[in-house]
Write a protein that binds this DNA or RNA. Sequence first.
DNA 1: CATAACAGTGAAGGGTGTTCACGCGAGTTG
DNA 2: CAACTCGCGTGAACACCCTTCACTGTTATG
Lengths: 269, 269
Amino acid sequence: MTTDTSRELAAGGPLTRRERQRRATYDEIVDVARTLLRGGHEVSIRAVAGDMGLTPPALYRYVDSAAALDDLVTQHIFVDVVATMAAARDVHPEDDPAARIVAASTAFRAWALGNPTEFRMVFASPPAPGAPPKAAHTKFPLAADCPAGESIFTDFFGELFVQLWQQRRFPVPSRESLDPAVVAVWEEAGSARQATAELFGDDGIGVLWLFELAWARLYGIVTLEVFGHVDPVLIASGAMFRAVILEIGTTLGMADEWERLRDIAGYSG
Amino acid sequence: MTTDTSRELAAGGPLTRRERQRRATYDEIVDVARTLLRGGHEVSIRAVAGDMGLTPPALYRYVDSAAALDDLVTQHIFVDVVATMAAARDVHPEDDPAARIVAASTAFRAWALGNPTEFRMVFASPPAPGAPPKAAHTKFPLAADCPAGESIFTDFFGELFVQLWQQRRFPVPSRESLDPAVVAVWEEAGSARQATAELFGDDGIGVLWLFELAWARLYGIVTLEVFGHVDPVLIASGAMFRAVILEIGTTLGMADEWERLRDIAGYSG
DNA sequence: CATAACAGTGAAGGGTGTTCACGCGAGTTG
DNA sequence: CAACTCGCGTGAACACCCTTCACTGTTATG
């Protein structure tokens, strides 16, 4: 159907000439936008269009609105930071999840400190009242459906966390010792509950809970440092970050290896 | 000098008529701006001027720029949130610093969740490259000079923290057990070091360090919740916040009183 | 080849920050 | 009291922003 002449290079993929062009334009949009962002400028339709040699209305062929532009950039930032973390993770062997998770966390912090504006845009964006909740934490290990947005980030850490637990079986709080409200959350979570239960048995809730706590600590220290609410020297030295990583690691049964892990977390003394 | 007629009401203060008028206008500016903010609108020079029945250029008699307007509002937000926390603190007697600090922390969280836009503006603002560092944590207990900006916030918690320690003398890490980089930070801090040493003796550094860690945890969980990077139900139930408060409290020697403090932290089960 | 889809333009309407020249009037001064 | 300064406010204007619309040229398709 609709096949005639210019379909030669369809061997590689179902990409018509126009589609390739369009995709390239999208890439350039994101590229220009992130360059602006890193340069401290605002990401505006006009600025991006201008840097591309286009008039502003032209961008509306690719993007519905300025907010959609932000979303587009946000998506790419997510995959970018995940890629950065994955690279740091992969310098350590697969049978060493402790090193891998510490390396990834450290890379996350380094990226955040190096790209504060992008970090703020992605991780400290307003609650968007009425919008679908950002957190995809309920579908924990690997999202069944949409791999978009924040979930690719959550999944990254979730996978690492699971591997760590499967190797070390660090103690997790029992269902009874948990705040009843917490238990209720995952009891009612429907599909998520089943997936979790299958993976971790009775410890499921405890594992999920520790994951949330660990994530809270990591997010907290990184946000604190990025926004400069702590002594700059403490940031530069990385002492505070290492201390938090040590806390997390202790909770997750990595305390005995602290000297090794501390080096991975970037000890510079 | 320059004294003649209109100096009658100078008894109450050195406020000339014009000065009072001017001050009232400032108050109205802040008032209108915060009303806009709470209503979900942007704080713009034009909008504020419009709501006051003025033309935009008129506002430049009071404010240097839109950024300065933001700063002005930010200042008032700081004193506002501190006042809110102080009110929560003061329902508990002075000889119960544990209850007071938990109540204040809980009020801080509640305020943040209720005013996310203001929170983002004040506590998750970009690092402002080149600007003076926001954190006044070095001058810990009570700032000697400028009581402006974030320091009034830090001082509030600092004072509470000091009282807690003076009552309980919870164990603090020794100078030797601390990351050398941390020790170096406060060793070189000059004036701050002396003030701290006088107050806490040899434990000074350890106390400061625990304060920073506690602040990091509180800031982290509140930011996490405000920006929705965690399950909404976990936020609504307050379970996560209580868990973090428990962590902090355990570090600060309040674990034995957890049941009492948990209620203060707003248990709703 | 004719036609429909696409990409891009210019104009226009609405929002914002900011500067400038100007005027009005209250406060100050001779 | 007259004159004057100075604070306060206005209107016009420039620059930047988002967005929509009608319109055109190019490109791919049938």
